[in-house]
Computed example of a mutant assay.
Amino acid sequence: MNTTPSIADTVMNMVSQSIQVLTKPSVETFEQYENKGTLRDAVIYVMIAAVITGLFSLGSGLGAFLNGIIGTLVGFLIFTYLVHYIGKTQGGTGTLDNVAYTFALFWAPINVLFAVVSLILLITLIGIFLIPLLAIGALVINVYFAYLAVQSSMNLRESGKIWITLAVAFVGTLIASIVIAGILR
């Protein structure tokens, strides 16, 4: 008998865990879930979120939709690998599974919510002017949750080491994204 949960069960568990992480943000909440999944689980969850957000922009064409999904997955993987690697250089002790799973719990639902609200604002036309503010808000929220997630998943507590980890991961991901975009042109 196979005791491995199905993909549907894993995703439903992650949705439930995401709700907890988003409504009770703390290092302790993240620590409850950091060992509950793997990199594979995180990638599946992020891919589902990428497809959902892509569906909201499908009007831009199938190519843009597919590039968005691939770009999202590659960006997520690069970022989480860099958080893990840089976190280790800062004395962190977490695993790549811990980092990817923890980040997926907040990143996926925040991005889906951003896509839904952006579409609503776009439809209202007046709301189109609020989309940049929404993007800034989503960025701030992601940074806040990333700060908590690094503390939990990498077991880092010193603020400077957490910021170094996040800043280097962000810059590395940005550079990789620019290179990948140049290649795909």
Rank of each mutant, 00 (worst) to 15 (best):
G87F: 07
K24R: 15
S16V: 01
I120D: 06
L133M: 11
G61T: 05
L66G: 05
N111Q: 10
P109W: 06
V83E: 02
A115V: 00
D97C: 00
V43F: 02
V15Q: 10
P109I: 07
V117P: 02
I136S: 06
D9Q: 14
T95E: 11
Q20R: 14
S153V: 02
V15T: 10
S16H: 15
Y45A: 03
Q32M: 13
K36S: 12
A181M: 07
I52Y: 04
E28S: 10
I70R: 00
G37C: 11
T89K: 03
L73M: 01
Q17I: 02
S152G: 06
L122G: 04
K24M: 07
L125N: 15
I162A: 08
G182I: 09
G91T: 13
Y144P: 06
Y81M: 05
T93D: 07
I162S: 11
K24A: 12
L121F: 05
L148M: 10
D9L: 14
F79M: 07
L96V: 10
N98S: 15
T29N: 08
R157P: 14
M47H: 08
D9C: 08
G172I: 14
S177A: 12
N67W: 13
G182Y: 06
V117G: 10
L166Q: 04
N142M: 12
L122Y: 08
P5S: 09
F76V: 01
Q17T: 07
Q20A: 15
I78S: 12
L134I: 09
I7K: 14
V27I: 09
A181V: 08
Y144D: 08
T80R: 00
Y144L: 05
A135T: 09
R185G: 10
R157A: 13
F65D: 11
L174W: 03
V46C: 02
T23Y: 02
V140L: 11
I70V: 12
N111F: 06
